[in-house]
Structures are given as C-alpha cells and as structure tokens.
Design a protein around this nucleic acid. Structure first.
Lengths: 120, 120
DNA sequence: GCCAATATATCGGTCGGCGATATATCCGTC
DNA sequence: GACGGATATATCGCCGACCGATATATTGGC
C-alpha cells in the first residue's frame, strides 16, 4: 500500500504526462496501473490537484465530458480536465530523477544480503 | 535527501543484519553507504532504536568498546551494542519485500515516458 | 423511483518526524 | 590541566501534513 503524497505527486504528474485527465479517472488509473496497491483517495487527490495548480504545474478547465471534445466548452455536461503544463513536465523530470536517486540509495542497503551471526 | 523513518527502519535493520553495531556508528555507516544522502540524525535514530527494541526486533547490551570484545561486559569503557534478533531478521525480509513491491508500483508509472501533447 | 457508480470537494484531529537541546567521556595539543 | 572537537547516547515537544470522514450533485440501469 502507498498513500504518501510525495509519491502521489509523482504518479499524478506521470499520468497527466500521457494526456489530459480528470480527478475520478486519475483515481481509477492509479489503482489499475498499480494493481490496487495505490489508492489515490479523494482526501489525497483533490488537495494535491489544487496545490499542483497553484504551483503552475498543471492547468484545469471545465469542458465537455467526451475526451475527444475536451477542449469544447460549449453546452452539456462538463467535467474538470487537468493538463500538464511545461513547468509540470520539468517538475516530473525532477521527481523521476529524485525517485531514481532514492532508489539507488535504498538499493545500496537492501542489495547487501545478511552475512553471518555475531559481531561485525 | 531522505529522512523518513519508514526507510530509516529498513536501513537500520539492514545494517544490523551485517553484524552488531551501535548508534553513532549506524549514523556514520548510513551516511557513508548513501554518499551523504541519508542522514540518520539522533532525533530519528534513537527513538527508532528504542521502538525496534520494544518490538523485539533488536536487542541491546552495554559491552566493551572494542568490537572483538563486544560480548565482554567486564571492566573499562562500554557502549551500547545492538544486535538483530531472529524476529528482526524476519521483519527485515518483510520490509525488503515491501520496498521491492513499492518499487515495482512506482516503476509502473515512471517507466512510462511522455507521449505527445494534448488529450488522451 | 431507487441505488450504485460517477464526480468533485473540504475540513480538522491525530500522529509522528526530527530540530533543538542536554550531557558526558575521550583524545590531541598547546 | 585546560580547551575544543569528535565521540556517544538520549529526550522533548512543536509544527505541519496526511487522509478518513463527510457532504453534495449528477447519471444510468433496472
């Protein structure tokens, strides 16, 4: 399981890098991709989306429900579409690097398998 | 940089799986192995050691300073040696598995590189 | 007409990470 | 013999963030 909002940011930016999406879809995508291990609950997701928008990493607009009409702000039902900004794209790159760096650090420890009993 | 105490537990158990050690040494080892990225500060380390001992994952004893005499509780200067218990060894295994699982989950996202502009 | 699924959003209590701080010993050196 | 930096262990409690709980409206299937 994984709910920390640090990884949540990485995941949301990553999903949006593949194209525009919206809140509910993001929770579903996250769960599907991680085979249920990643639960992007409303309490985590929406505050995060707001924060990302405030930082200028994503943009939002209320547009048509159908994906192919996502830019059409005409009549009918709407939902809130989010898109990755250029700044967000850069941030995603940084986050990926940070993750890979962390990965190497932890691997430096878990890569080493136990030796023997007793004292060093 | 990485200070979360979740990873701290993994790291401490991992270091102790290589042999007995003590607080100050653990901070130094952690920094060295991670090339300075992992700062196991006193405020993180000692509460963690206490907790790990309470859970029966490690044991401690005040013994001689010299590593080769670490079991000798005779005269002279002492320091507090920590050792991984069998239970701790099992926990380490679980934590490594959990880490590798998390790793796979995140990789499922960062492995996917950006496609093109616009809508899904 | 009803229920489950879809869709977005806020709030605040709870929990814990970790900076700041305290204390004591050891050793080199001036 | 005293000063300072490194060694070594330990506690405390502030601050802030995480996210469970909750609210609300719409849609679609039966």
């Amino acid at each position: 399981m994984l709910t920390g909002s640090e990884s949540a940011e990485l995941v949301v930016l990553s999903l949006l890098s593949e194209g525009a999406s919206y809140g509910y879809q993001l929770t579903k995508d996250a769960a599907a991709r991680s085979e249920g291990h990643l639960r992007l609950t409303p309490g985590v997701l929406y505050p995060l989306l707001r924060q990302l928008e405030n930082e200028g990493l994503i943009t939002s607009s209320w547009d048509a429900v159908r994906a192919e009409d996502a830019d059409d702000a005409g009549e009918g039902r709407k939902r809130k579409w989010y898109r990755l900004s250029p700044k967000g794209k850069r941030r995603l790159g940084q986050r990926v690097e940070a993750y890979e760096s962390l990965r190497r650090v932890i691997d430096a420890f878990v890569g080493v398998r136990p030796r023997e009993e007793g004292t060093r």
